[in-house]
Design a protein around this nucleic acid. Structure first.
Lengths: 338, 338
DNA sequence: TTTATTTTCGGAAACGTTCTCGGAAACGTT
DNA sequence: AACGTTTCCGAGAACGTTTCCGAAAATAAA
């Protein structure tokens, strides 16, 4: 398990290590023949420069870090694919860590990335994260960072977000246009930036159409199937069935759908359903689920490009918040039967 | 963006760097008070040892690498969670990379991990991977490695696999017991180890029950929804509808389901469906999908424990292939109506 | 007090690179 | 032949640690 180092190659060719280094770094002051020879024997010996040593010296690693809260849902994996698309082309490696929605893990992950001297970080905050002091420091020190999806307005970085307000508004309006009047919103923890925006869109759509809301119009459910199930079952038990439910994501909607079916309610005749952050299965379930599609890969690509720009522009850049567009895919679950 | 180094701390306390190092590494030959004082001022100064430098010196990194072919399906993410569970407790960090089913990417990822001096590697081969020579060398040099799910019998490592043969057999037998006679298997590329085992299980179940197979009994579809759709649509167009279809995974089954519904066929009355590697949505679709559940997290945990053992036992260990058990969850899609 | 032993600390090498500096060789110019 | 340029290469410092070795200081034993 002994690694072949630059010294081994130097000894073999009896020349200095600096010459070897030059050959590999394609520097000007080396004769072409020497370089070719070095490269050839290096390859033969199975030598490749040790990036750890390089990182230590250069104080950067040609790696970028991605920390996401989870990857059970397909959203983050898809974003990551977009990120990788950009960075692989540029010769960067993408290191991924997941915090499992835990602030503690997240912080550790970020520190690990930092210590590994990643050249930049793409981060989506965990469910739990309230205290962003450490990240704030990092940013102030000039550490390149881009936030996406789960952002914090306390942090002064590039951000890539979805127009949650707008699309929650449209989704709600769609239900209103279909003639639904008693609409409930299953949301998630208010600590998440996007949930607040979606709530606002939900409320404003009601205002625009002069539709009344009530105490139970907004219910804090969660992001999981089980959350949707639980809250739906509660509503059924309490005989508080609304006309329609706008859910914070597809998973939650699937949970609600399951319970409604279990108790014999028809969708959308009895209760209509709309999801968010469309998953591949929205069109697989029965009835197929109306949902707001987010451009996941593009979110990733955009975040990657912003980070790249920041890394390469060494300090001088204009902070951006990119708001990406989506679309509402209307399917069976929300089309009111005549 | 200047890092605080051990030297800074040493200067501040005017003592030597070795003393600081000792304080952090909890060595015996240091006075308790000095240690406390060092730790206190180090914390105050925001110093933490640079793992890159440490890696360079120690020739290991306290990091382990995970390379998976994809994470669009929830299978690999779930396995990774299991892996992390084990390693986080032990103070290791888990670096994740995905090859996107490309051999080239996979090889690069593995090399990147190696160069980053990860202490070990957990690998699941990509769809494309045929040539495992490089990995073979690595293993022979004593590099700790564990393969799972997509393994190769050319590689002499710890392996964690699922008993694909057995469960494909059971799944097929289940369909036979339900009275289905003309059963088709949607498989995926034969280059994947598990697909061969599933095919074998499928065939042997037929043999046991003296059921004939025909030319079109085994169809190479793929792992995606679109693959299931495509092959299903072909069968429908050719009027070659079987009684039942056993699919290589849930996604493929979902695709088939979609097409069957589109053309007005009833499931399971006209065609029964069985999936594999159960996803959370098996019970969400309508009809709910019978599928074989794999213990994803446990696969991860097991692989992690094997790797850990190998890393810590420095050379002396018994090669294991752990075969994990699953279960067949029978749902609506495969229960023949009386 | 002297000597032996233990405790505690500093100096310096090492890990594998890159890069600056300076020098030797080769070449061109007068 | 003398000098200036250019081309090519080697020596050595640096990156931030850990650890071996030896020495000073403190303690114990004589």
């Amino acid at each position: 398990m002994k690694h072949i180092t630059i010294k081994d190659v130097a000894k073999r060719l009896n020349c200095s290590v600096s010459t070897i280094s030059r050959a590999f770094n394609d520097k000007y002051d080396i004769r072409k023949e020497t370089r070719d020879k070095i490269l050839a024997t290096a390859k033969e010996m199975g030598y490749s420069p040790n990036p750890i040593a390089k990182s230590l010296l250069k104080q950067c690693s040609n790696q970028i870090g991605v920390v996401v809260p989870e990857f059970i849902n397909s959203f983050f994996p898809e974003v990551i694919i977009g990120i990788q698309e950009v960075f692989i082309k540029k010769g960067y490696q993408v290191l991924i860590m997941q915090s499992n929605e835990s602030y503690e893990n997240e912080l550790e992950n970020v520190k690990a990335m930092e210590n590994n001297m990643v050249d930049g970080l793409i981060l989506s905050l965990s469910f739990e994260t309230q205290n962003v002091e450490y990240y704030e420091n990092l940013i102030q020190q000039g550490f390149p960072m881009v936030l996406f999806n789960r952002v914090s307005n306390k942090l002064n970085t590039h951000k890539v977000v979805f127009d949650d307000y707008k699309w929650a508004f449209f989704a709600t309006e769609h239900l209103i246009y279909q003639g639904y009047k008693n609409i409930v919103h299953f949301t998630t923890s208010h600590s998440l930036s996007f949930s607040q925006n979606r709530i606002k869109g939900f409320i404003d759509a009601h205002k625009k159409h002069k539709l009344k809301m009530h105490d139970g119009s907004i219910i804090e459910a969660g992001l999981l199937i089980s959350d949707g199930e639980r809250e739906m079952e509660k509503l059924i038990a309490q005989h508080k069935l609304p006309d329609a439910i706008f859910c914070v994501n597809d998973m939650c909607a699937f949970g609600a759908m399951k319970m409604l079916k279990k108790y014999g309610y028809k969708i959308p005749a009895d209760v209509a359903l709309v999801g968010f952050t469309e998953t591949k299965l929205a069109e697989m379930v029965d009835p197929s689920l109306t949902s707001v599609a987010q451009p996941t890969k593009e979110i990733g690509r955009t975040a990657a490009l912003l980070l790249l720009e920041q890394i390469e522009s060494k300090g001088i850049f204009v902070l951006q918040t990119v708001v990406l567009n989506g679309r509402l895919n209307v399917r069976e679950s929300s089309v009111r039967p005549k």
